[in-house]
């Protein structure tokens, strides 16, 4: 077994700035984590199939399929991956969708606070 404190995180977001922000904030808290990135839902699904991560952050509005749909597909084959949906759109329908996936919806912008919520979810979901 590899060192259990080293976790793999996949960041899915079409915005480079968002990916950098999430990566920076996460690494500040968990410097040992390994981070990969995808810019759309399709790429994320392909990546997960070849190299499944422990955790994933998922944007909703991206070119191609919606992040929530990508998350649903990923969880179908990899139910153990913990996914946090990151979105600027926090209307009830999205909240409900995230919960139905056993995930949580965290409101953008990416800040220390939103990252703390994300890390909490990852930790407690184990």
């Amino acid at each position: 077994m590899p060192d259990s404190s080293i976790k793999k995180l996949l960041i899915v977001d079409d915005s480079k700035v968002s990916r950098i922000l999430i990566r920076t904030h996460i690494l500040a808290q968990r410097p040992e984590w390994l981070i990969t990135e995808a810019t759309c839902g399709e790429d994320a699904i392909a990546l997960v199939n070849t190299d499944p991560p422990d955790y994933c952050t998922m944007d909703i509005n991206m070119p191609g399929i919606q992040g929530t749909d990508a998350a649903a597909q990923i969880l179908l084959n990899h139910p153990s991956i913990k996914i946090v949906i990151f979105s600027a759109n926090i209307q009830e329908t999205h909240q409900a969708r995230a919960h139905s996936l056993g995930s949580i919806l965290v409101a953008k912008p990416v800040t220390e606070k939103s990252i703390a919520l994300t890390l909490d979810y990852f930790k407690n979901a184990q």
């Binding site: 915005s15 700035v17 600027a88 953008k108 912008p109």
Partner: peptide
Amino acid sequence: TEIFSIGAG
């Protein structure tokens, strides 16, 4: 774009 997407949200 990200800033305005958040605004749009």
